[in-house]
Design a protein around this nucleic acid. Structure first.
Length: 584
RNA sequence: GCGCCCGUAGCUCAAUGGAUAGAGCGUCAGCCUCCGGAGCUGAAGGUUACAGGUUCGAUUCCUGUCGGGCGCACCA
């Protein structure tokens, strides 16, 4: 199958494992440590492994002796690898055959949009929950970061062979939604000239006035007359969710499912979860927690406010599972705390067949990570079922000044503002460049500049340049080479093609580590290689055979840039309008 | 007080425990009779906060110190 691309990593691993077996050196423990990486320095080959050094001590042999054994049993006629060398302290370096390297552009183009995809994840079902902002206001800039990162994680997982689904959890069951409804009601009253005083702790944002203006007036007046709190609640909730969905859609982020907390209450899943916990014997009735770490004990003793009088609540034994103290799941008055539906929600995820769950949370919830994972262990889910990743704050800067955000005060930079001012391509590229658990300073002034200071353009420009070259070539009757490839000669060409070939490995690594920022990092490096090649190896001015060969290399680069940007949710335009021309 | 995250070039940030720690921006010096100069080439810029430890090897893992951020409710 000409379109198929097999991970070189997999091929290499199989070949070396076979060599180890032939040498009588293979054990399951050793094979588990067999991994390959792409060396930074090209002089170290196309692939390298540190395996020999890792197992030398345990095997009682020198790294070199092990390396020699592998070299001896490695197939001399391997279709990809032409040379295996022992280097340094015991590295084993692998080099592609020239014929294989030369065939790479054609292979990449044959794979097309599928280049970069692999079956590494073996179809494991995984659910990625992100943003999950409360439906009490428009999307803010932290949600924008989480949305970009979450969507990219889903993309790279699916590309690398997992079956990943995206989900947005809507907290629509809490009293905050009641408060939101009451706030909307006040805004409506203000609009029709009545007393529009907001309720205690109500939401002050202007967006509620906007929503109030959109309400069907007759219905709203009727709800006001009959004091129908449920109507206000439902109106506020549904309109707020629709707003969030609209903002996210404009940003290019959609979810496979918007899961509502209320579903869990209505279906009885919350009660069922409570019973399941009771049956496992991990709950108890008490006024104070029984399982408490030493450090938390002082807090329990000092805070009388924590308990509602002397009535006993239902506690969950999370302390046994690593939490610093047990947690209440049902209050003394019989209402569940937020923890119980959260447990029910993750139980539901597992029941839907997901083997793993990834949650992206804001840093204000990081203390809750241990509590929830402990609770899920108490429920009996696999220890590695839930993995919470913290997406750190975005510090929004206007030049040197920090812009403070507060949803309740209605003072924040929204996702919609960001998309309008910066564009979703720049915003998403910007967010994805950084590892998600690092703090991020987002300078609006700088991001707004449509100039060479904006890194997103660098990659898009590289793509547009490839497209332009193909167009110009076609005008002159030059099309990309097909069939067998001429050998690669120029150093810039070898470097570029080598870089192109590593894309599937980058995607695999990004998916396995759930680190989508590796993709833009790679695309920046690739673009630099491409620009170097372009400057040093003229295409259309070369003799036709060379020109057609270089056109194919550029086309392969275009394909990889396009595939990479697609994973990021960033567009790959075939042309970029130039600012100078636009102004002229 | 306890816990989590972070500390890498002037700034923003990279670097599955690997070989000489890299980009972008900024600064300085060059490159358009030429396929898109939103580009390329070169220079300067580092005790990876500090001190120990683990090992063939540490920016990466462990302990401590310092500095910054965040969190510690029968709120979500």
């Amino acid at each position: 199958m000409p379109g198929a691309w097999t991970l070189v990593w997999s091929e290499l691993r199989a070949a070396v494992a076979a060599a180890l077996d032939a040498a009588g050196f293979a054990t399951p423990e050793r094979l588990a440590r067999l991994d390959f990486a792409i060396p930074r320095d090209p002089s170290h080959g196309d692939w390298t492994t540190n395996f020999c050094m890792l197992v030398a001590k345990e095997a009682g042999q020198s790294p070199r002796a092990i390396a020699d054994a592998i070299v001896k049993h490695f197939p001399a006629d391997h279709p990809m690898i032409g040379a295996v060398e022992v280097a340094g302290a015991g590295f084993l370096n692998f080099r592609y055959r020239d014929s294989f390297t030369a065939s790479l552009p054609a292979r990449i183009l044959a794979a097309g949009e599928a280049f970069g995809r692999s079956d590494f994840g073996a179809g494991e079902k995984i659910i990625v929950e992100f943003v999950s902002a409360n439906p009490t206001g428009p999307m803010n800039i932290v949600s924008a970061r989480a949305a970009a990162v979450g969507a990219a994680i889903v993309s790279v997982l699916n590309a690398a062979g997992w079956q990943a689904a995206s989900e947005f959890y809507v907290n629509d069951a809490g009293n905050q939604v009641d408060l939101l409804g009451a706030s909307l009601k006040a805004r409506f009253r203000a609009r029709i000239g009545e007393d529009g005083t907001l309720p205690e702790g109500g939401y002050q944002g202007e967006y509620l006035a906007t929503l109030a203006a959109e309400l069907p007036e007759a219905e709203a007046r009727a709800a006001l007359a009959s004091d129908d709190a449920a109507w206000w609640r439902a109106q506020a909730l549904e309109r707020m969710i629709a707003w969030q969905q609209r903002d996210l859609a404009r940003y290019g982020v959609t979810f496979d499912r918007w899961f509502r907390e209320s579903e869990l209450h209505l279906s009885g899943a919350v009660d069922e979860t409570k019973r399941a916990l009771d049956q496992r014997g991990v709950t108890y009735l008490s006024v104070k927690p029984l399982g408490v770490s030493e450090a938390a004990q002082a807090r329990v003793d000092s805070e009388e406010g924590a308990s509602a009088g002397d009535a006993p609540a239902t506690w969950l034994k999370t302390h046994d599972q690593g939490d610093d103290m047990d947690r209440v799941i049902v209050r003394a008055d019989g209402r569940p705390t937020y923890l119980l539906p959260d447990i029910a929600y993750h139980r539901d995820k597992r029941d839907r067949g997901f083997r793993r769950a990834i949650n992206l949370w804001g840093p204000d919830h990081h203390a809750y990570v241990t509590t929830l994972t402990s609770a899920l262990k108490a429920l009996g889910l696999e220890d590695d079922f839930l993995k919470v990743q913290i997406v750190q704050y975005v510090k929004l800067m206007q030049g040197d000044e920090e812009v403070k955000m507060s949803k309740r005060l209605g003072q924040f930079e929204t996702l919609a503002d960001l998309v309008e001012e910066v564009g979703s391509d720049c915003a998403r590229f910007f967010f994805l460049q950084l590892s998600s658990n690092a703090h991020l300073k987002f300078d609006m002034e700088k991001a707004k500049e449509r100039s060479d200071k904006n890194p997103a353009f660098y990659v898009q420009y590289a793509h547009a340049r490839c497209c332009s070259l193909a167009r110009k070539g076609a005008e002159r009757g030059l099309t990309a080479e097909t069939g067998d490839s001429a050998p690669l000669t120029a150093a810039e060409e070898v470097a570029l093609v080598r870089k192109l070939s590593t894309f599937p490995e980058v995607v695999r690594g990004a998916a396995a580590a759930r680190e989508p920022h590796r993709v833009p990092t790679y695309l920046m490096e690739l673009s630099a290689e491409l620009h170097r090649y372009y400057h040093n190896c003229p295409v259309l001015k070369a003799e036709p055979a060379v020109a057609r060969h270089r056109l194919r290399v550029h086309d392969a680069a275009r394909q990889v840039l396009s595939n990479g940007l697609a994973l990021m949710g960033v567009s790959a335009p075939e042309r970029l309008d130039r600012e100078e021309e636009a102004e002229a």
